[in-house]
């Protein structure tokens, strides 16, 4: 009775349940012949019959196990039969899970085709869109067009990642937990996806006509200004230059996005809320990226002055908002304060 049970289990967890059933029938004899005939007659509903057959076989198996258990020590071998069933069930489950995972991976790869329309661009189109992302259009009454395309935004985000890596390297940024690469990727993708979804949510509240795809494309192309500014200012360490670029290039790309959003929103309050949020986030992000990962000449001077200063981690070594011109009086003030302290201590 043990021999028929094994192939049935294998067939159930393995390829075709029908074949397992057939084999069973051939070996088992008796009732199987009736089933075969059934199948031949009603070719349409044969699967139901097979299901029934399986049910019966399973019951037989359990009976066999029970009988075997009775022959030897009852308690112990009841356990054994139970264990056999359990292991078969586990194997079955594993097989199912594996199959599901494999099919999911395969369907993911097949689903690339779904994304393909968003990457359907020509180089000239990308070039013109990049340029347009710096040119705000003052057209408020009619909704401005946004190309729903993801190639440009994705590439810009990757470019920003590369530029950030470059900036972190030159500024000797030290990150204790995590890698430079991970931080850069996390920052850029987090900003792109996070702010897009946030603004999309706000747009939904403010009743603006924009889809998630359009939002992603808009914000993605808005990062072009960031890329330019950061690439230049990571290499040329001039504060005045950075502020100029921040206002000019960053401002232009922000204005472009704001203009598009304004043309797609109705009502002054909604416009103010939506565009104010986006503009603030976008401009502040550029500030953050610059000062968090920027090597400044003053930083070196500081380390020369005081070698005992502990290494900071991801902290700007200069004070944002202090122009070089304004810095001079500040350092002088510091010097006078120090002198005062020294003189006080000596007294």
């Amino acid at each position: 009775m043990a021999t028929p049970a094994a192939p049935a289990g294998g067939a159930r967890s393995g390829a075709g349940p029908e074949w397992g059933g057939f084999e069973e029938n051939i070996q088992g004899g008796g009732s199987a012949v009736i089933d075969m005939e059934n199948m031949d007659d009603t070719s349409g509903s044969s699967f139901e019959d097979m299901g029934e057959l399986h049910q019966r076989l399973r019951e037989e198996e359990v009976d066999a196990d029970a009988a075997a258990a009775e022959e030897e020590d009852g308690e112990f071998l009841g356990m054994k039969g139970f264990k056999g069933q359990l292991s078969r069930q586990v194997a079955d489950q594993m097989w199912q899970a594996g199959k599901r995972q494999a099919s999911r991976a395969f369907s993911l790869y097949a689903n690339i085709d779904i994304l393909r329309p968003y990457f359907d661009v020509e180089p000239a189109q990308v070039r013109s869109r990049l340029l347009e992302s710096m040119i705000p259009i003052k057209m408020v009454n009619f909704p401005q067009k946004i190309a729903g395309e993801l190639y440009g935004p994705l590439m810009l985000v990757f470019t920003l990642v590369a530029i950030l890596l470059h900036g972190m390297k030159t500024s000797d940024t030290i990150i204790r937990e995590g890698t430079l690469m991970g931080t850069a990727i996390g920052t850029c993708f987090g900003y792109w996806l996070g702010v897009s979804s946030f603004i999309y949510f706000l747009a939904y509240l403010c009743n603006a006509q924009i889809t998630m795809l359009q939002m992603l494309a808009l914000l993605g192309y808005g990062l072009f200004g960031h890329c330019i500014v950061l690439f230049i200012t990571y290499n040329i360490h001039l504060h005045a230059l950075f502020y100029l670029f921040w206002l000019l290039v960053g401002g232009l790309s922000t204005l472009r996005m704001v203009a598009v959003l304004v043309s797609r929103t109705v009502g002054p309050t909604q416009r103010l809320l939506l565009c104010g949020t986006l503009a603030a986030l976008h401009m502040l992000f550029l500030l953050y990226l610059h000062f968090a990962y920027h090597k400044v000449v003053e930083g070196i001077l500081d380390t020369l002055e005081g070698p005992n200063i502990p290494p900071m981690q991801r902290v700007p070594r200069d004070v944002p908002g202090v122009l070089p011109a304004a810095r001079l009086p500040a350092t002088m003030l510091n010097a006078t304060a120090k002198a005062l302290v020294v003189s006080l201590q000596s007294h």
Binding site: P7, G10, A11, G14, A15, G16, W19, F22, E23, I26
Partner: peptide, 18 residues
């Protein structure tokens, strides 16, 4: 699995035409 693969052949010989 091997048995499952062989089974069509077996069936062909073992079970008659009808």
């Amino acid at each position: 699995m091997a048995e499952a693969a062989e089974s069509p052949g077996d069936r062909g010989t073992a079970s008659p035409r009808p």
